[in-house]
Amino acid sequence: MRILYFAWLRAKIGTAEEEVAPPAGVATTGDLITWLQTRGPHYADALANRAVVKVAVNQDYVGLDHPVAPGDEVALFPPVTGG
Protein backbone atom coordinates (compact mmCIF):
# COMPACT_ATOMS: atom_id res chain seq x y z
CA MET A 1 0.00 0.00 0.00
CA ARG A 2 1.35 3.38 -1.04
CA ILE A 3 0.79 6.34 1.32
CA LEU A 4 1.22 9.94 0.12
CA TYR A 5 1.43 12.98 2.40
CA PHE A 6 0.98 16.61 1.36
CA ALA A 7 1.54 20.13 2.70
CA TRP A 8 2.12 20.37 6.47
CA LEU A 9 1.32 16.68 6.94
CA ARG A 10 4.25 15.88 4.66
CA ALA A 11 6.48 18.36 6.49
CA LYS A 12 5.57 17.04 9.96
CA ILE A 13 5.91 13.37 9.03
CA GLY A 14 9.10 14.04 7.10
CA THR A 15 8.35 12.09 3.95
CA ALA A 16 6.21 12.63 0.85
CA GLU A 17 5.45 8.98 0.24
CA GLU A 18 6.13 5.51 1.53
CA GLU A 19 5.18 1.87 0.99
CA VAL A 20 3.61 0.27 4.03
CA ALA A 21 2.24 -3.18 4.90
CA PRO A 22 -0.28 -2.63 7.69
CA PRO A 23 -1.20 -5.57 9.95
CA ALA A 24 -4.26 -7.69 9.17
CA GLY A 25 -6.64 -5.75 11.44
CA VAL A 26 -6.32 -2.55 9.39
CA ALA A 27 -9.47 -2.64 7.25
CA THR A 28 -10.49 1.02 6.86
CA THR A 29 -8.93 4.45 6.36
CA GLY A 30 -9.68 5.20 10.02
CA ASP A 31 -7.86 2.01 11.09
CA LEU A 32 -4.95 2.98 8.84
CA ILE A 33 -4.57 6.41 10.47
CA THR A 34 -4.75 4.84 13.94
CA TRP A 35 -2.01 2.41 12.94
CA LEU A 36 0.14 5.12 11.32
CA GLN A 37 -0.03 7.11 14.57
CA THR A 38 1.83 4.29 16.32
CA ARG A 39 4.77 4.54 13.93
CA GLY A 40 6.48 7.36 15.81
CA PRO A 41 6.11 10.78 17.42
CA HIS A 42 6.14 12.60 14.04
CA TYR A 43 3.17 10.52 12.88
CA ALA A 44 1.33 10.88 16.18
CA ASP A 45 1.76 14.65 16.08
CA ALA A 46 0.81 15.09 12.41
CA LEU A 47 -2.30 12.91 12.66
CA ALA A 48 -3.47 13.99 16.13
CA ASN A 49 -6.42 16.08 14.93
CA ARG A 50 -8.46 14.03 12.47
CA ALA A 51 -10.78 16.96 11.77
CA VAL A 52 -7.98 18.48 9.67
CA VAL A 53 -6.85 15.27 7.96
CA LYS A 54 -8.50 14.66 4.60
CA VAL A 55 -8.24 11.22 3.00
CA ALA A 56 -8.26 10.08 -0.62
CA VAL A 57 -8.10 6.47 -1.78
CA ASN A 58 -6.99 5.99 -5.39
CA GLN A 59 -7.42 9.76 -5.92
CA ASP A 60 -11.05 10.03 -4.74
CA TYR A 61 -12.13 11.65 -1.47
CA VAL A 62 -13.35 9.11 1.09
CA GLY A 63 -14.45 9.03 4.72
CA LEU A 64 -12.74 7.31 7.65
CA ASP A 65 -14.85 4.15 7.22
CA HIS A 66 -13.70 3.50 3.64
CA PRO A 67 -12.03 0.10 3.10
CA VAL A 68 -8.32 -0.05 2.26
CA ALA A 69 -6.54 -2.92 0.53
CA PRO A 70 -3.01 -3.82 -0.56
CA GLY A 71 -2.22 -1.99 -3.79
CA ASP A 72 -4.28 1.08 -2.88
CA GLU A 73 -2.85 4.58 -3.17
CA VAL A 74 -3.89 6.38 0.02
CA ALA A 75 -3.27 10.13 0.39
CA LEU A 76 -3.46 12.08 3.65
CA PHE A 77 -3.53 15.87 3.50
CA PRO A 78 -4.88 19.02 5.18
CA PRO A 79 -7.98 20.85 3.92
CA VAL A 80 -7.18 22.23 0.47
CA THR A 81 -6.34 25.90 -0.15
CA GLY A 82 -6.05 26.34 -3.93
CA GLY A 83 -7.76 28.78 -6.26
Partner: peptide, 26 residues
Protein backbone atom coordinates in the same frame (compact mmCIF):
# COMPACT_ATOMS: atom_id res chain seq x y z
CA UNK B 1 -16.19 26.35 -10.79
CA UNK B 2 -14.21 28.62 -8.48
CA UNK B 3 -16.25 27.79 -5.37
CA UNK B 4 -15.92 24.05 -5.93
CA UNK B 5 -12.28 24.27 -6.98
CA UNK B 6 -11.44 26.08 -3.73
CA UNK B 7 -12.76 23.24 -1.59
CA UNK B 8 -12.16 20.16 -3.77
CA UNK B 9 -9.02 20.58 -5.89
CA UNK B 10 -5.98 19.25 -3.98
CA UNK B 11 -3.75 22.33 -3.88
CA UNK B 12 -2.04 23.80 -0.81
CA UNK B 13 -0.53 27.26 -0.47
CA UNK B 14 2.53 28.05 1.59
CA UNK B 15 3.31 31.75 2.05
CA UNK B 16 6.70 33.32 2.62
CA UNK B 17 6.55 36.19 5.14
CA UNK B 18 9.11 38.16 7.18
CA UNK B 19 8.25 35.84 10.11
CA UNK B 20 8.96 32.71 8.04
CA UNK B 21 6.98 30.28 5.89
CA UNK B 22 3.43 29.35 6.86
CA UNK B 23 0.78 27.10 5.39
CA UNK B 24 -2.44 28.87 4.49
CA UNK B 25 -5.37 27.61 6.56
CA UNK B 26 -8.63 26.60 4.86
Amino acid sequence: LMDWLKTKAPFWKQEETPAGARWVAA
